[in-house]
């Protein structure tokens, strides 16, 4: 028997890609449904249809959108300030002395578990600010490290070249350093965007700001409301995918401007 849709004969690459994505999604939702039927216990697992229905129900409420908005804003604030701070620190630490001075800080942030940060900051900050600070801490070492690598990529030979040909100040930064740093920066932003969202929501779950996705997830678990745990988890995944897509598009636009980086 012949398959009604032969993907190999679809010439439009975009359509082919979308079709494959949809088929893969259908396959895994079917697996989920299969497990649900096998377990047959709503306390342990929710069905895909129930989750979808509940998302539509919650989506019609103002509280749902407020929770999403506040969580996104909090984490975004931590993310953006982390990126800015990371770039600043990497630029400052281009000097060897400052690099040695601050190296232990970056090591410390990298080695400390997120949970420890959440617990510590609980003592110092208001609960609304904790996810912001935790997100900030997640981003800083990644951006700092990657941007520093990009800055180091402009070796002495290129600094000498700039000196000989009087390429100084902003011109030097714009034409020499930014193109070298950009691919490292893009990779740091992309990696940290995925991490920051997870860490930010984890911080919300633990410290429970009044209006947040994390608090809703915590409440759902407390009331053994498995369906809502699944729903809020699905919401977190969907937002993460949307943010990832937005960041990817933004980075592509920036990278296009500078094409392939590297020195010859």
């Amino acid at each position: 028997m012949q398959c009604p849709v032969r993907i190999s004969i679809i010439k439009n690459e975009g359509l082919k890609k979308t079709l494959i994505t949809v088929l893969v999604a259908i396959f895994w939702i079917a697996v989920w449904q299969g497990i649900y039927l096998l377990v047959s216990d709503d306390l342990i697992i929710a069905s895909p249809m129930a989750v979808l229905n509940r998302i539509f129900v919650l989506g019609a409420t103002k509280d749902f959108w407020l929770a999403v908005l506040y969580s996104v804003l909090r984490i975004l604030l931590g993310f953006i300030s982390g990126v800015v701070f990371g770039v600043l620190m990497a630029s400052l630490c281009a000097s060897r002395l400052l690099n040695q001075l601050f190296a232990p800080i970056i090591l410390l942030i990298r080695a400390t578990p997120v949970a420890s940060f959440i617990m510590l900051t609980w003592l110092w900050l208001k609960r609304d600010s904790i996810p912001v600070f935790v997100s900030f801490l997640m981003v800083v070492p990644i951006v700092w490290g990657n941007v520093a690598t990009g800055i180091k990529g402009v070796g002495k030979e290129y600094k000498d070249f700039a000196k000989m040909y009087k390429i100084t100040g902003m011109k030097k930064i714009k034409y020499l350093f930014i193109p070298s740093v950009l691919p490292h920066f893009a990779s740091a932003v992309f990696t940290s965007a995925g991490l920051v969202w997870k860490a930010g929501v984890a911080a919300e779950v633990l410290c429970q700001p009044k209006i947040s996705i994390g608090s809703n997830l915590f409440d759902a678990r407390s009331f053994l409301d498995t369906l809502d745990v699944f729903v809020w988890t699905a919401v977190i995944i969907i937002i993460s995918l949307i943010l990832e897509k937005i960041i990817k598009t933004l980075l592509k636009q920036i990278e296009k401007k500078f094409a392939i980086a590297g020195l010859t």
Partner: peptide, 12 residues
């Protein structure tokens, strides 16, 4: 003006 031993061109 100095022509370096290596070309030192900027790839971008």
């Amino acid at each position: 003006s100095y022509l370096f031993q290596e070309d030192r061109l900027l790839n971008w």
